[in-house]
Design a protein around this nucleic acid. Structure first.
Length: 653
RNA sequence: GCUGCCGUAGCUCAGAGGUAGAGCACUCCCUUGGUAAGGGAGAGGCCGAGAGUUCGAUUCUCUCCGGCAGCACCA
């Protein structure tokens, strides 16, 4: 007798052990048809799994997250089967499920091309039509290693060989094709359906290590129905239209050009956003008792040697020889013999220098030292990405020098500040991560234990949920990271707080404690926006260029309907400007339709149309971006209302 | 940096072994129009750079540069 409890709390008893498939059939015919896997006491397993004893069970269907994951995993397998049928010289490696789909890494001499996708997809559909039964087999590890070696699947053999000796491995067989896999899988290939599409082709290192050979990765997406597949493809297409590089060009915010790779040319409109943001965050910092400083851009190599950057970070630094370039035709411009200086990649060592001027008392702490520091980092070319990853960036950086007993309070305060700012920016999809000790690190395990625990309690006190990342911390300490999403779902680290016991030591920063002795301060490296460039990139994508009034580069455009109303337009413009609004008058010889269309495309939040009727009544016809309706209101009222709306969030009553 | 793809007017994109085309934008003219394109004319290109194949290359081949996607990197 076996008693099985279903998700709705109901239970059923069976005389003998039975498979998931039999269970589904016992519940209903339609469920049996839709069933693709089984949840047995919380674990997703094959539908064919025998249920031997009392358990919590659920039948997995494609319309659940678990079901979709199984589907995508099978889609990866079917991709691999199709590829090996079409290209027998290909070795398989791994093929995991990812957000919205899956990928499979292949090893093959000849590169795949996008043109191959059609043939591969066709073969995948044929495999679905064949409806091959998918069977799980348990093999001894050594036998599996030998087998995969023998059939020339060296990567698979390597994976299996890394499984502990003596353990059995599971092999899934579908038709003539087989793969090492933990599972679970569909009962047969026919259950996959055809709502899949191969999307991207890219290189990827074997085992994620750039010292290893490059494999060819094929990405795909897979859904329970064609409708969902179509919806996903449409969503991706629309998301691409939100790309900040595209919107930045359309709205004339900034540009990039190859003579300054990774450095941004900010146009006037983009720089208005920058300034509004900088002034806003500066006020927030002032309110939180930060002091603002400015430190040198170029410092001698010896300085970076002392800070440890020369050792740990040199590859990412721009180096400048301290000599006068030769103007002789024949001579080398630079001798290569001069002392070296470097553009600062970070502000922290310079801030320590300010801290070290004079003698600091424990009474002075915490010192919160902020700088809108322009830093240069020599990023790999392949890493550069619009505003998101640049080589010259400005951080809303600050270093908090404090005593150990002040760490938690400072960290909690910081988390509150981030939450406040991100709320003002309208971000609701923020991911918080805690990056823990990396393999190569400075400081004892005891120090790290303490540091990590402190950040955990700070996150807890701030009421946040977070994910912990092993091995991702800075060499000098663990860090809290706030990640934001871009238009197509990629995440970018923005705010960060890093706990550092090392730098004060290296640069010999001290304060006089209550006991009259010298002590090391702790440093908290922190940024709220992160890099201003990246943050604006995220803002553009999140707002799709339709900024709230306080950030909009152009807030108001005044459009006379006939040239007779031009002089009244001037009057409206003056009123707007006097109220501090960023306004412009469009007196071009164009029809109102045309002007409305153009300024709407330019994402100007407010269009004020004025004709003779408005001129006589001292009113304006207000049209808000994205709203078809207009309303005619008194000029003075409109200006006052817009003025209120354009007030930055921290200055509102 | 690695793998793949791409590079034609300011933008979006056609094109073909015989030195280029559209729409939008731009300039000028006509039009004074009431809320997402009024009409006409004009100007605009070393077809990413270099080398090779060819009678001839923007088109084919190679190298480089840049862009895009992913990987690695992101202290």
């Amino acid at each position: 007798m076996i008693t099985l409890t279903l998700p709705d709390g109901a239970s059923r008893t069976f005389d003998a052990p039975l498979s998931g498939a039999a269970l589904a059939a016992a519940i209903s015919k339609s469920l049996a048809k839709k069933a693709i896997a089984l949840v047995l006491d919380g674990a997703v397993v094959d539908l064919a799994t025998q249920i031997e004893h009392d358990a919590q069970v659920a039948i997995v269907t494609p319309d659940t997250p678990e079901g979709l994951a199984v589907l995508r995993h099978d889609c990866a397998h079917i991709l691999a089967e199709a590829v090996q049928e079409l290209f027998p010289d290909t070795q398989v490696t791994i093929g995991p499920v990812i957000d919205d789909g899956f990928y499979y890494d292949f090893a093959r001499e000849v590169p795949f091309s996008l043109d191959d996708f059609e043939a591969i997809e066709n073969r995948m559909r044929a495999i679905v039509d064949r409806d091959e039964e998918i069977v799980r087999e348990i093999w001894a590890r050594d036998k599996a290693v030998a087998h995969f070696k023998e059939i020339g699947e060296h990567y698979k053999a390597e994976i299996i060989a890394s499984i502990p000796e003596g353990e059995d491995v599971s092999i899934y067989r579908q038709g003539d094709w087989q793969d090492l896999c933990r599972g679970p899988h569909l009962p047969s290939t026919g259950k996959l359906g055809k709502a899949f599409k191969l999307t991207k082709l890219a290189g990827a290192y074997w085992r994620g290590d750039s010292n290893n050979e490059v494999l060819q990765r094929i990405y795909g997406t897979c859904w329970a129905s064609d409708k969902e597949l179509q919806a996903y493809l449409t969503m991706i297409e629309e998301a691409e239209a939100r790309d900040h590089r595209k919107i930045g060009r359309e709205m004339d915010l900034f540009h990039l050009q190859e003579e300054a790779q990774g450095s941004v040319f900010w146009h006037d409109k983009g720089y208005i956003i920058w300034q509004a943001l900088e002034q806003y965050i500066r006020r927030r910092l002032q309110a939180a008792d930060y002091q603002e400083v400015k430190t040198p851009q170029i410092l001698d190599m010896r300085f970076w040697q002392q800070s440890g950057h020369w050792d740990k970070f040199r590859e990412n630094m721009f180096v400048v020889p301290d000599e006068v370039p030769s103007i002789e035709e024949e001579a080398h411009v630079i001798t290569g013999k001069a002392d070296l200086m470097a553009l600062k990649p970070m502000n922290c060592p310079a801030h320590v220098q300010i801290f070290k001027q004079g003698i600091k008392s424990y009474r002075d702490l915490p010192i919160r030292m902020a700088e809108f520091g322009c830093c240069h980092r020599n990023e790999p070319h392949g890493a550069l990405h619009g505003l998101m990853r640049v080589r010259q960036m400005t951080q809303d950086d600050a270093h908090i020098f404090c005593r150990e007993d002040q760490i938690i309070e400072e960290a909690v305060e910081f988390c509150h500040l981030v939450q406040l700012v991100y709320k003002d920016m309208g971000f609701d999809d923020v991911m918080v991560k805690l990056a823990l000790r990396p393999e190569t690190r400075a400081g004892s395990d005891e120090v790290w234990d303490r540091a990590e625990e402190r950040l955990r309690s700070a996150l807890q006190s701030a009421g946040l949920e977070w994910e912990e990342l092993d091995d991702e911390g800075a060499f000098y300490g663990p860090k809290i990271e706030y990640h934001l999403r871009d238009a197509i779902g990629r995440t970018w680290q923005c705010a960060t707080l890093q706990l550092d016991f090392v730098m004060p030591e290296r640069l010999d920063a001290t304060y006089i404690g209550e006991d009259g002795n010298k002590h090391r301060p702790v440093m908290l490296h922190r940024a709220v926006l992160g890099s201003v460039e990246r943050f604006i990139g995220i803002l553009i994508e999140n707002y799709v260029g339709r900024f709230p009034l306080w950030l909009a580069p152009e807030q108001v455009v005044i459009c006379p309907i006939t040239s007779e109303a031009d002089s009244y337009g001037e009057e409206v413009l003056t009123a707007c400007k006097q109220a501090g609004l960023r306004a412009r008058l469009d007196v071009r010889n164009e029809k109102i339709n045309y002007k409305v269309r153009e300024h709407s495309h330019a994402k100007v939040p407010v269009i004020l149309a004025v004709g003779m009727r408005e001129a006589e009544a001292k009113s304006v016809s207000v049209r808000r971006l994205g709203v078809k309706e207009q309303s005619v209101q008194a000029l003075t009222e409109v200006v006052t209302a817009l003025q209120t709306e354009a007030t930055p969030p921290d200055l509102r009553g």
